[in-house]
């Protein structure tokens, strides 16, 4: 499986997470323990985002 396929999959995942989140945030009063769920979703979102963006990182010390 090449990197492009993986990235596409991850991007689709992020979009789904964001759409579900918007629905949750509009109707969060109906969910018990909404913020616990949301904390997990949010943390997962950032772990995913940093994984995707690690593609634009290159090896070496941070310099100019």
């Amino acid at each position: 499986m090449n990197i492009e396929t993986v990235l596409k999959g991850l991007m689709v995942g992020v979009v789904i997470v964001l759409v579900v989140s918007v629905v949750f945030i509009k109707h969060h009063d109906h969910f018990l323990g909404f913020h616990i769920l949301y904390g997990a979703i949010g943390a997962g979102f950032f772990l995913l985002a940093t994984r995707i963006l690690s593609v634009i990182q290159k090896e070496g010390r941070q310099d100019d």
Partner: peptide, 16 residues
């Protein structure tokens, strides 16, 4: 709500 959010975040951090 804030407490739930931050505790869950901390849990995810220490696991991952």
């Amino acid at each position: 709500g804030t407490l739930e959010l931050l505790m869950m975040t901390a849990l995810v951090f220490f696991i991952l």
